[in-house]
Design a protein around this nucleic acid. Structure first.
Lengths: 400, 400
DNA sequence: GTGAAAGCGCTAACAC
DNA sequence: GTGTTAGCGCTTTCAC
């Protein structure tokens, strides 16, 4: 309601109030004047108006719209029709204030605009969330925050009852949000590996992803592979490091780790300078992988002739750069759908355990190729690409 | 409130109710039992609890949290402190139901996941909206819908009072949403050229953008330039067509129009085949432009040696592809901020007129170069790029 | 199967 | 300045 109201608005409010008071004082059925005021006013119809039109009580209308069984089919039909005619929908706020379940999922992303914007994962996630949410009548409340504002926003949104559950993404090691949502009593689900029994997780089945990647690279003759992690603070980083080491050991591949340094003048050149013997890299972040393949030739490293690159995550961006990126595609939409399903259970007070969704698929494109012959150095000839536009092959990774 | 409640929950509710009833029956100040129940229960604190703790009435608390002046500074401080201690925030739903202003902006995007996901504009828009929204205590409710569900979602979100205003994007010619929001009485702002007095617009100052682009291309010797539009139904398409024609005429450049056909087997090849004499193109959509520069060489057209490409819209994607895209950068964040400011005025009942934000900047990168000599045909030598990594130059476009 | 009535937590008019 | 009170529109007992 506007703070500064017009004269008409004041008159209207006063009229409404009068009508209501008359109704109260007469203690009778329904004075026609109230009906008239309510139904012709620009204000939205109320449950009372619908009830009146259907010739029933407000509670009957409520029952129908909440799927409670105490109303006969015929009456229910009449009520629905009246609601339609008045174009009425239960007021979300009123419903909440009177104990009805809320229907809003909070997604608070602690990223700067640019790192948010250049991660296609978020577009897939947002798009993937909206459909299952819409199916159950929920909506998505989204915001970006700075790291030091994160807790405040969770507390505020929950405290104001603006949202009824949270989806936690970018989970960090010792992430304070887990304790926070438990303290608040807020239903929450996280995307990533399970951390805490209190907050169910939706995990992508990643166990064999590295084996698949290293198998692919091994076949191409690579014996030394490096893993490039983007953000060291994220919870998944260490787990992936370990899996990478193990899978490499099993396949007799020499594993190493290289950090991406976004503060360098030329992060790609700087990274390539630190690769050592590695002839292939697996990059945690798709846009970084894309930057590497795009920029490497400009600093003297041909992809895939001298270096093979695999992106962990896949999207249209991988098919945009040249050479196209070989990538590990995650079932983001499936994760989103699963998270929504869990959230719905939590909100209803049922308990929900963590879930695992299907594994990553290795999509082989053009950024991986035969390992360079050891003799050749950085001055290797820029061999013509075997087939620049060869179609993608897909290796389905077996689930576990 | 969960439908299926535990025994404990039932007991708790019953206890609360008892306490409340005792309070009502005694008709006295505040029975200690109620305070105890409310404050130690896991339920969130209420305004009454805060008032009690601060030794004032609920309305005093309300006044403080709504910036009304009727409370002394000392009392206000005491109230704030009590609220902090109880970790209380005004309940959003209650506030709305009792006439308080809402604080939620609806953004309904009628796009399929993939066309949404591959348009970096939306990431910039979302990121750009959240900050100004947070500044005024609003949040963003976002959803994707199919075209035939669009109207239903607007009606539903508004009818339920789930949102308090709408931001209209992807405005189409004769867009039914304009009449819809006016009929609903919903505050709304659109991004794009003004269409209707009822819905204020935030427009990017595009008047001279084509003159700037064509000036740049003219200097490079291009005499025939084509415009590639993505979605013919969008309202901005025709306006841009006209501006393009006019600017071309003024500069003695031969203008043509070519449609992008996403259904073709190879849309890029198909498009290039229809360019006629044009040696440069201006592409409405950044990801299409990126696809063109990435794929053109694979079908025998070198960029920029044989064809110059300019993208209308700019983001990190333009710097990812090779050659890097010369692009027209729009002030998306400024548009978002302006839209939020307008919306806030509308919601308060003040009127708000359309606004124009600063013009597009031409960012010259590597996808534009000298026009090919007319004699040379498709078999032109793949001349070495003059400077593959030359730094971007920026031409500020003068506003009007 | 139906309706009356008491709340939900807050705001705002008005009296003190 | 501060408190009282009557709503907001809905849900939910609990009588009928």
């Amino acid at each position: 309601m506007p703070r500064n109201v017009s004269a008409e608005e004041l008159v209207k409010r006063y009229t409404m109030r009068l009508a209501v008071n008359v109704y109260r004082f007469t203690l009778e059925g329904q004075p026609p004047s109230l009906g008239a005021v309510t139904e012709t006013s620009p204000k939205r119809a109320t449950i009372a108006a619908v009830a009146r039109r259907a010739g029933v009580s407000p509670s009957a209308v409520s029952h129908v719209f909440n799927g409670r069984p105490n109303v006969s089919a015929a009456t229910a039909e009449r009520i629905r029709q009246a609601a339609d005619e008045l174009n009425w929908r239960p007021n979300y706020a009123s419903r909440k204030v009177s104990g009805g379940g809320g229907r809003s999922l909070g997604l608070v992303i602690a990223r700067a605009s640019d790192t948010f914007g250049r991660d296609p994962f978020f577009m897939r996630l947002i798009a993937g969330l909206t459909e299952p949410l819409a199916d159950i009548g929920w909506s998505l409340s989204l915001t970006l925050v700075q790291a030091d504002e994160e807790e405040r926003v969770y507390r505020q949104w929950w405290g104001e009852q603006r949202v009824d559950a949270f989806l936690l993404v970018d989970v960090r090691t010792d992430d304070p949000r887990l304790a926070l949502v438990e303290q608040l009593g807020a239903p929450a689900v996280l995307l990533g590996a399970p951390i805490d029994d209190g907050v169910p997780a939706v995990t992508v089945q990643d166990d064999t992803a590295f084996a698949t990647v290293l198998g692919h690279l091994g076949e191409l003759g690579h014996v030394s592979v490096a893993r490039v992690a983007d953000a060291p603070g994220l919870a998944h980083t260490r787990a992936r490091d370990q899996r990478f080491s193990r899978a490499a050991a099993e396949q007799g591949i020499n594993a190493s780790f290289v950090a991406w340094d976004p503060t360098a003048d030329d992060p790609v050149a700087e990274l390539l300078g630190r690769l050592g013997a590695a002839t292939a890299i697996v990059v945690d972040n798709e846009s970084i992988a894309a930057e590497i393949v795009a920029h490497a030739p400009e600093v003297g490293v041909e992809v895939p002739e001298q270096l093979s690159v695999v992106a962990w995550e896949d999207s249209w961006v991988s098919t945009l750069v040249r050479p196209r990126l070989t990538a590990l595609d995650a079932p983001v939409e499936e994760s989103a759908r699963t998270a929504v399903a869990l959230l719905e259970r939590l909100v209803r007070g049922e308990d929900a355990g963590s879930r695992t969704v299907s594994g990553r698929r290795l999509v082989v494109r053009d950024s991986t190729g035969p390992a360079p012959a050891p003799a050749r150095s950085a001055s290797a000839p820029k061999a013509a690409r075997t087939s620049r536009t060869r179609s993608s092959q897909t290796h389905e990774e077996e689930g576990s």
